[in-house]
Amino acid sequence: MITTPITPPLVRGAAELETTVRGLRPHRLPASVRERFPDPQLMMAESQPSGVRLVFSTTAEQLEVVTHPTRVVYLGADRPRGRVDLLVDGELLHSDELTGGSYTEVNMSTGAARQVDGASHTSGFPRLPAGSKTVEVWLPHNESVELVELHSDAPVEPFSSGRPVWLHHGSSISHGSNAATPSGIWPAVAARIGGVELHNLGLGGSALVDPFTAQVMRDTPADLISVKLGINVVNMDSMRLRAFVPAVHGFLDTLREGHPETPLVLISPIFCGIHEDTPGPGAFDPASFGTGQVRFVATGASEGVAAGQLTLRVIREALESLVARRAEDPNLYYLDGTELYGAADAEVHPLPDALHPDSATHRLIGERFAMYAFAGEGPFGETVQTRKSL
């Protein structure tokens, strides 16, 4: 087997690759952000390589990818392990569940935590199709990993599709929470249908209209952009309406500094019954501890809306109005998130933890976004079709 050094040209969807004692750790936010604002939730989210993948061309029929996972384990909540997906010429052939690695074990009742270290994991992919092919190795969306080694029985070369780059930012739903596989998160589903390269800045618990996120997006090359805002602001009870609206204006202004004419879709939250008319903060439901499925609840009171507290219904109205007031920007679009997942969908595909969609619903949301955005008349359609014709 040939050992190929893992270098930046092989990696897509990461801002930086940090050198560690074992190998390389992909980061989705640059060191300048991580050093200036090392919030634990943000650091965990950005280090989980949602949407990050190795991409190369090869004639190899056997591959091995060695990674060292790092994760958080919550006692009483049985969360599935991350997976490494292997796609060949765009088709999913293998999905390998991680084992071993290091983890922090957290007791949600007491807050106590302990660190446990384990061995690295080898994802083996034998019997690949013969001949030249494009291979994508999608890294887990829900565990941080260090890239240790890449082995193959034939040389690998970096590959660039030349497709448009879609840069997306959102909350844990965009990050992929409750999806079973990294290539099954809704932005990955939509990107595959739309024929574009995904750069995912879905950051679990951290879609908070942060200026540094807008600055990172401003400075990231992209042909298409979408921003999904609202649910984290509500379930953290982090803003009032008076602060939220100008903050979103500022976020969009920053994006436009680097991408003045790029098609940009502002997406409001999908349906979430606990927060439709009840402000945050959100919290774990203690009654669900030990059941195998932790659930969330809203702890605010509807009376707070009159004082400016935010609910999902209030946010959708605010974002729609905000886009209307930016009519001078012909490339800015508003998408009501309930078009992707609404109240009727919740009857058929309920959110398992009352907050995040399951794998089938990720696929549904991805298909609906692709139908909206990448169709010929959609906000991204012209860019994609123009690139295809070149």
Rank of each mutant, 00 (worst) to 15 (best):
G290S: 04
F289V: 13
R240D: 09
E149L: 09
T383P: 01
L54I: 00
A307D: 12
L335M: 10
A373W: 07
S47K: 06
A130Q: 15
P352C: 05
V165F: 03
V294T: 09
R83A: 11
E18M: 11
T220F: 02
E143M: 03
G342S: 06
L54W: 00
G230D: 07
S132Y: 02
L310D: 11
A179Y: 01
S288I: 08
A222G: 05
L128R: 03
V294E: 04
G230Q: 07
E64S: 12
V234R: 12
H356Y: 02
D85P: 01
Q41N: 13
E149N: 09
D237S: 14
S206F: 05
T338H: 07
V294M: 15
A60K: 03
P281I: 14
I365E: 15
G131F: 04
A375R: 14
T104P: 05
E146F: 08
G194W: 09
A188R: 13
I270L: 12
L364G: 09
V248W: 07
A360D: 15
R34K: 14
A190R: 13
P357Y: 03
H249N: 11
M43P: 08
H68K: 10
Q62Y: 08
T4F: 09
N331P: 05
R242W: 03
M371D: 15
K228H: 11
A112S: 06
R53K: 12
F289P: 04
L208P: 09
V314W: 10
T299M: 13
G170W: 00
D78E: 12
A214Q: 10
I274K: 14
R81I: 00
R79H: 13
R81F: 01
A243E: 11
A346C: 06
L201N: 04
E16K: 05
A112E: 07
S120I: 02
S389G: 11
P263R: 05
A373M: 08
G378I: 01
L255Q: 01
F374C: 14
L208N: 08
W166V: 03
G273K: 13
Y334W: 06
A247F: 02
G308M: 07
